[in-house]
Structure formats: structure tokens, C-alpha cells
């Protein structure tokens, strides 16, 4: 368990604003970084960052324990998808469904990985696997759209994403145990 975050979230539930401030100091770069990658605009990324931490404050019960960074990244991605929807840039394209925010991600093995280790593991993937994974996660589009954009059969894209994620898991496990 991510005991620090668990403890801080208990204090947030008890309405301790200092605990939220500590969580912000520890995790805002993660939230802001994901939002910037997905939205590409400072003001939109700032709005999402503010919205995520205010949600942590107003609905701390959504965090069911486990991997706090994973949970907050999920919340961030969902808000970015909402922002992309509201831009309505491609009304003909269906955006993926948001991920559940009230589900615990019990596996905390990767909770303390730093950005460099993850980037290194990602770079080690073949481009044909890395690109659809990144496009799917940060681009906020469905795998069908990825297949269309990359002109690759749908079934092939699906298999590449799954194989890429499995390889990534193995690489990250190696980074954790190193």
C-alpha cells in the first residue's frame, strides 16, 4: 500500500487542508504533465490540475486505497477527455469512455517509479507498439481511430497494444526490482 498517500487521504477525509497541500506538492507535476501532454495548452492544463485537486478535496471517498498516483492519473485523463469533448473538435469521432475513478488499483509496485524509468521502458518498445499505446492513452482516441490514422488493420492494432503493454509491464517490473 502507498502508506503516505493513504495517510494523507485519511486526513483529507477529516478536512485537513494541509494534507491536501502535501498531496499537491507531491503529485501536481504528474497531473500537470499528463494534462499538458493531452491538451497541449497551458490554461487548459491548469484548469484540469485545479479541477483534479478540488475533486480530491470534495470527493476523497472515491479513493479506495492502493496506488494513489495511478488513481490521480486516471482522474486527470478523464478530465482531459471531458475537455477534449467540450472542444468538440471532431464531433464525428467517438471518444473513448472515461475510466472508473472509484476502483482501487491494488498493485502498487509501480507507484514510486520515476518519470525517467517509465520513459526508458517506453522507448525500449518497438515503435509499432509504443505509438498506438501513447496515442491511445494521451491522444484520447479509440483504438479504431488509431487503426484508421495509422492505416493498420484493427486486429493488428489490438494485438500490438496488448503485446506492448505486457512488455512494458515486464520492463517496469525490472526497473522496480533493480
Amino acid at each position: 500500500m502507498d502508506l503516505d498517500a493513504e495517510h494523507l487521504m485519511m486526513r483529507v477525509r477529516a478536512r485537513d487542508a494541509n494534507a491536501l497541500e502535501t498531496l499537491y506538492d507531491a503529485h501536481h507535476r504528474l497531473v500537470y504533465g499528463v494534462a499538458m501532454r493531452m491538451l497541449g495548452e497551458v490554461s487548459a492544463a491548469e484548469d484540469v490540475t485545479q479541477g483534479v485537486f478540488l475533486k480530491v478535496w470534495s470527493s476523497p471517498e472515491l479513493f479506495r486505497g492502493g496506488n494513489f498516483p495511478a488513481w490521480i492519473v486516471r482522474m486527470t485523463r478523464n478530465r482531459c477527455l471531458d475537455a477534449l469533448r467540450s472542444r468538440n473538435a471532431h464531433p464525428q469521432t467517438e471518444l473513448p469512455e472515461t475510466l472508473p475513478e472509484d476502483t482501487a488499483i491494488e498493485d502498487v509496485a509501480f507507484a514510486n517509479l520515476d518519470a525517467r524509468a517509465v520513459r526508458s521502458a517506453l522507448q525500449a518498445l518497438p515503435a509499432e507498439q509504443r505509438e498506438p499505446i501513447e496515442l491511445g492513452f494521451f491522444g484520447g482516441i479509440t483504438h479504431e481511430e488509431i487503426a484508421r490514422k495509422s492505416n493498420v488493420p484493427l486486429g493488428t492494432i489490438k494485438t500490438r497494444i496488448r503485446m506492448g503493454l505486457k512488455k512494458l509491464r515486464t520492463a517496469l517490473e525490472g526497473a522496480v526490482s533493480a
Binding site: 504533465g33 499528463v34 502498487v108 494521451f138
Partner: peptide, 16 residues
Amino acid sequence: EALVPVVAALGTSQEA
């Protein structure tokens, strides 16, 4: 359950 933390770690790659 094995893949969800991997996906979550993707976000870490963008940590500013």
C-alpha cells in the same frame, strides 16, 4: 489487474 498499473505508470512518463 496486471495491466492497469502499467497503464497508470504511462502517466508518470509525463511527470513535469
